[in-house]
Structure formats: structure tokens, C-alpha cells
Design a binder for these strands. Structure first.
Lengths: 228, 228
DNA sequence: CCAGCGCCTTGACTTAAGTCAAAAAAGCGT
DNA sequence: ACGCTTTTTTGACTTAAGTCAAGGCGCTGG
């Protein structure tokens, strides 16, 4: 297990804080260990703080009335989540559950707000985090409403390629079922589209490894939003 | 034209600031007057500040490769927009255009960041604004991916009913074409669904006035996401 | 090595919603 | 009130993607 102070100082949210400020942050943090599949909070739950993933993986998701699930984010080490109700409204806007055995840091609301009030750079960091989220949501909404599923998948593959720094092959770090939910579709549809992309020599799927045979073709598809 | 200081002190973003702080805010604001249909900024434009609507109406929207438009927000007096790149990334994530002749206040990036650093309550207000936006986006994504168009329309009508404080009738303050774009669909589809809702005695459309004949039916539809 | 289980794929079918085209209705300035 | 534009509606048709059901693949553990 990494030292807590190390985890905190590695998190982008606390970037550029002084040793002393980092220690203040550490003081208010509370450890929380969760097994795989543990629900951390549910939409509409009252919130008294937010979390940072120290280790493991967490999904943030919405569920429809019929029980269909749409994954909004999957967060790994260093990522904060559940901050929205700290600053507005008090209730979580979505659900959170661990995908792996995880170690979380919990930051109580009032203590954290105090800290922010005293540290302008922490406030600016948090504004940066929320702004990045808004940017990502903007892209997600664009994808959902202006692109078809093949375009969304292509966007995701291009994103993975940048994320993983490779132009030849990418590795999915989630199951295809979860990927379908992240793209706003269902496993059957995703599977059919992967098959089509194989046929068109855009990619070559080898389980969770996807060989990018035509990256510029994928970029095109991500841009235009339609297959063929 | 309302006095600028009045506009500023009425905006939620500057809620609870002292007289002196409000004056500081005023000092850095720059007036901008726009005709109807004026593009304020385009996605990917470099940003050197954000805006608040003093008077008029502004749409924030994305455009697909084929030119199809999806409206993300429509903002009226008191609403800030274009804040994301002030705190992260520097480029606007979407486009902004006036829907009416409008009066905007522009806040230059560096001066505003200075102000925030000195005023913790301003920082917290801004965190609140961004958090509310994230909450709204979460709902939008839920609507787009987990509900069908009738469900989204019902949600919007219920929202309008709360907004306007009436349970009997609501008034659209945008055209049906714009509403279609806001709901992530096209005018033809929206028109057909309005007709269906009329037939099912959920509503009665009278131009831009919509009589809510069965509000609990609409709430049901908004929840379940399917018509019939 | 095989059984059993979850994950993924495939097939046949249904359906919500988009496209294209045209008509009807509503605004708007003169 | 008139002619003009813009917005909204309607109809016929196409299509992307969802549903339901069955089968295959690849694990892990006995």
C-alpha cells in the first residue's frame, strides 16, 4: 500500500500545494477500503464529502427505470469523484460502485471547504478539475446526440490510442459489456460493430487487445460519426 | 438598460459578496453588445475570459460534421457561460451565439482569476456554478442514453412547470425547432410526439402555450422514459 | 481434462427515430 | 390586409439500433 501522503501529492487535484498544505489535506482524509462490487453511494444519497481513488477502480453510473445502466466515468488512482454535492445541492447526481477491490480516501465536506477557503491554489485546482469534467461531458453529449455508435466507438479507440501512447494497438481495461454501457449502447450492438470494423480492416480484435490497422480511418469515422 | 452594478449583484455567481467585492468585480467587467444571431465564440477558439448575460438570450451548442446542431444550454440574464477554459484547457468546448439582441459582460481571464484567489467566497460560488452545470449535464446524459424522445420531452415539460410555477399550463420561450435540438432530436420527430401526446390527452398545444392536462401522467412518462 | 460459468457473438425480428419532400400555418414588415 | 419568409406539420419511406433467444468461446477450479 502506497503511503497516503504520496497518494495525495500525486493527485492532480493537489498539484502545486506546499508540503504544509499537503499535510493539512492528509489530516482531514479518511481511509476507506472496499471489496469489488461494493456500492459507495447511490444517486440521491445525502453527501457529506467526496472521494479520491487511491487504488482500484470505480464506476460512476446512472440506472434507468427498467434497470438499464449507463456508465458515465470509470476512475482509477488519483481521480476524485462525488465532488458535485460538496459545492451544490447536497445529493449525488449518480451512483458509484467499485469495479475492483479498492482503497479510497474520503474528504469530509466541511473540513474540505474550510481548506479551500484558506488555499486559493486548492480552489483553483478544484475549479480546474470540475472544468475538465464539464469538457468531458460536453464531448459525451456530442457523441450521444450527434454520432452513431460506430463513431463513438472510433472516438474511444482514438482516445485510448492517445492515452496509451501507441498507434498500433490498444488494450481495453474494461469488459466489452462495460464498454457498451460507457458508449451508451448494449453488448450485442457493440459486438456487431466490432465485427463490421474488422471486415473493413479498420481494426483486428484479439480479445481485449485491439490492433489499429487504420488509425486515420478511425479518426475519420470518429469525426464524421458514420460507418461506411 | 439596467445599471451594471445591479446586474452583477443580481447574478447568482456573485451572491453574498460585499459592496466592495462587487465593485472589484465591476471594475474588471467589459460591456459587449451583440445583435441577434451574432456568434460570440466558436468551439476551439482560444479563450481569454468568460461572459455573463446581462440582457438577452444565448445558446451554447455543438455542431456535427454534417452541420446538425445540438443545443446544450440556453442562457438568459444572470447566467455565466464560457467559464470552462478559464480554469482548464484554454479552448472553448462548444459554440455560443445570441438568440436575441443581447448585452453581455465580459470578464478577462487573468483579472478574474486574481479576484478569485483573493475572495474565497467568490471561489466557492464559482465551484457551486460549475457543480450545478455538472449536475445538469448528468441529467442530460441520462435523458439522451436512457430515455426515448417522449420521455425527454415530458421531463422538459415537467421542468418548465416547476420553473414557471404553474401546474396547468407552460409557455415555451424558444421555438419548437430549438426545443427539438435541445432534446437531441429533430423538429419532425418532436412534432409527431406532440401530436401523440395530444391524442393521449396528456397535453393540449396552443402554439407556444402548452396546456398540461395530465401532469402526473407526464411525470410518469418522464420517469419511465417511454410513451404508452 | 473436463465441467460449469460468465462473457461475447450471431441470427431473426421489431421499433424508434431519421430522411426527404411537400403542404399548411404562423409571423412579419410594408 | 398583403405577400413574403420562417416555422411547423404531415406523409411515405429508410435505417440504426434495440429485443429476444440461442449458441460459442474461453476461462477457472475440481
Amino acid at each position: 500500500m502506497k503511503k497516503i501522503l504520496q497518494i495525495i501529492s500525486d493527485a492532480p487535484l493537489f498539484n502545486g500545494l506546499s508540503e504544509e498544505q499537503l499535510n493539512d489535506v492528509r489530516q482531514i482524509s479518511v481511509d476507506k477500503f472496499c471489496d469489488k462490487g461494493k456500492t459507495i453511494f447511490l444517486e440521491e444519497d445525502d453527501c457529506n464529502g467526496f472521494y479520491i481513488v487511491a487504488d482500484g477502480k470505480v464506476k460512476i453510473y446512472k440506472v434507468s427505470f427498467e434497470g438499464k445502466e449507463h456508465i458515465l466515468h470509470i476512475y482509477g488512482p488519483g481521480n476524485p469523484f462525488g465532488e458535485v454535492p460538496v459545492f451544490a445541492g447536497r445529493k449525488f447526481p449518480a451512483n458509484a460502485q467499485t469495479l475492483l477491490k479498492s482503497h479510497l480516501l474520503f474528504f469530509p465536506r466541511t473540513a474540505f471547504v474550510d481548506l479551500i477557503s484558506k488555499n486559493p491554489s486548492l480552489a483553483l485546482n478544484m475549479l480546474g478539475v470540475l472544468s475538465m469534467r464539464l469538457r468531458q461531458f460536453t464531448v459525451q453529449i456530442e457523441n450521444l446526440s450527434l454520432k452513431e455508435v460506430p463513431g463513438r466507438l472510433a472516438s474511444y479507440l482514438v482516445y485510448l490510442s492517445q492515452e496509451q501512447g501507441r498507434t498500433d494497438v490498444v488494450t481495453l481495461n474494461i469488459s466489452k459489456g462495460q464498454l457498451a454501457s460507457l458508449l451508451g449502447t448494449i453488448p450485442e450492438t457493440l459486438s456487431r460493430i466490432l465485427t463490421k470494423m474488422n471486415q473493413q480492416h479498420l481494426i483486428d480484435t484479439r480479445g481485449r487487445n485491439i490492433i489499429l490497422k487504420d488509425l486515420s480511418g478511425l479518426e475519420d469515422l470518429a469525426e464524421h460519426g458514420k460507418l461506411q
